[in-house]
């Protein structure tokens, strides 16, 4: 039985039993190269749910404040390993009610970076399929190309330490092999290139990268652990802490605020990165932040349900500062 069948079965059962009001999974988008979040309300409709290498959306986003419709609905949700960490981060802070949730963990072999594929073609990708570690892509004009899956994985997947959900009520199929987390420290080599720059180069790079921002706020709205919604400091005009002007200053400040506000809760799932319409590599900044937090506390956000995020705690024996 495939993972997809498991998901459909769990969804149908939960809907039939009335355990949930609706079930959130993934379904095919407007063509075979896209997967979009699916909201299933009836057991008869579970056949639209899919599981494949394109299911990049972090569905925990749809559990956070103001998202459930109607408010207080009982919700079933599919989570990959990284998604489950954001869910745990929300649960740690009691920002969502665990009793209203039914969580299906989906063991994950890595998700394809569709943006990387787009760069390979001038025309539109209409179909992506994956089998035996090969990814075949077809475009509208009839071009086809094959890639090795490792070459087109999301950055977040190449260094994944939690491929299985850390918290789930049911698991769709057998778990995938876990990396040796106790033996090996996280691999932060992806941020090394940026770290090696001089101060001046860092500033020039950040200014260049963030000047592309259009302040559409897709990154914060899609972020599962960014929960202020209509009270966001970046938008508030009373008080107006961040100017609404659209200069590089404001863009950079806004991104830094987002980064700080999710510090200790963000597992760098990369949802912000994928949502950004102008393809700003937000993921890397969040990785850097996670690296520092790991260095300071040995803490990986959202991995244990009985922990609290590090910035909500203190230890009198902390050794920071002079």
């Amino acid at each position: 039985m495939s993972r997809q069948d498991h998901i459909r079965e769990f969804a149908a059962k939960a809907l039939t039993e009335g355990r949930v009001d609706y079930f959130i999974g993934w379904k095919q988008g407007h063509n075979a190269s896209e997967v979009v979040p699916a909201f299933v309300k009836e057991a008869a409709a579970v056949d639209q749910l899919v599981w494949n290498e394109l299911c990049h959306h972090n569905l925990v986003t749809f559990l956070k404040r103001n998202m459930p419709d109607p408010a207080g609905a009982k919700i079933g949700v599919c989570v990959k390993g990284c998604d489950s960490r954001t869910l745990v981060a929300l649960l740690q802070e009691e920002l969502i009610d665990r009793d209203r949730l039914y969580v299906v963990g989906v063991p994950c072999d890595g998700i394809i970076d569709r943006r990387r594929l787009e760069k390979e073609f001038a025309d539109e990708i209409v179909a992506v399929s994956c089998s035996d570690g090969r990814v075949s892509v077809a475009t509208r004009k009839g071009n086809e190309k094959e890639f090795a899956k490792e070459e087109v994985l999301l950055d977040a997947c190449t260094r994944c330490r939690y491929p299985n959900a850390v918290y789930a009520d049911d698991v769709a199929g057998p778990p995938v092999p876990e990396p040796d987390r106790d033996g090996a420290k996280p691999d932060w080599s992806d941020v090394a290139g940026y770290e090696s720059l001089s101060d001046d180069e860092k500033q020039a790079t950040l200014e260049k990268v963030y000047s592309a921002c259009v302040r559409c706020f897709a990154c914060i709205h899609v972020c599962p652990v960014c929960v202020c919604w209509d009270k966001c400091v970046n938008r508030s005009r009373q008080p107006e802490l961040v100017e609404q002007k659209v200069g590089t200053k404001q863009k950079l400040l806004f991104q830094m605020i987002h980064m700080f506000h999710v510090a200790g809760r963000c597992p760098s799932c990369g949802a912000c990165d994928r949502a950004c319409p102008v393809e700003i590599p937000l993921y890397l900044l969040h990785r850097k932040m996670n690296k520092e937090i790991y260095d300071m506390f040995g803490f990986e956000p959202g991995t244990k349900l009985d922990e609290k995020p590090v910035f909500q705690l203190f230890d009198v024996n902390d050794r920071f500062g002079d």
Binding site: Y22, F62, C216, F217, A218, I220, H221, P277
Partner: peptide, 13 residues
């Protein structure tokens, strides 16, 4: 609108 995340991308493009 279930899957809408209420960002402004569509309007800005």
């Amino acid at each position: 609108c279930m899957r809408c995340i209420s960002c402004g991308t569509c309007t800005y493009v």
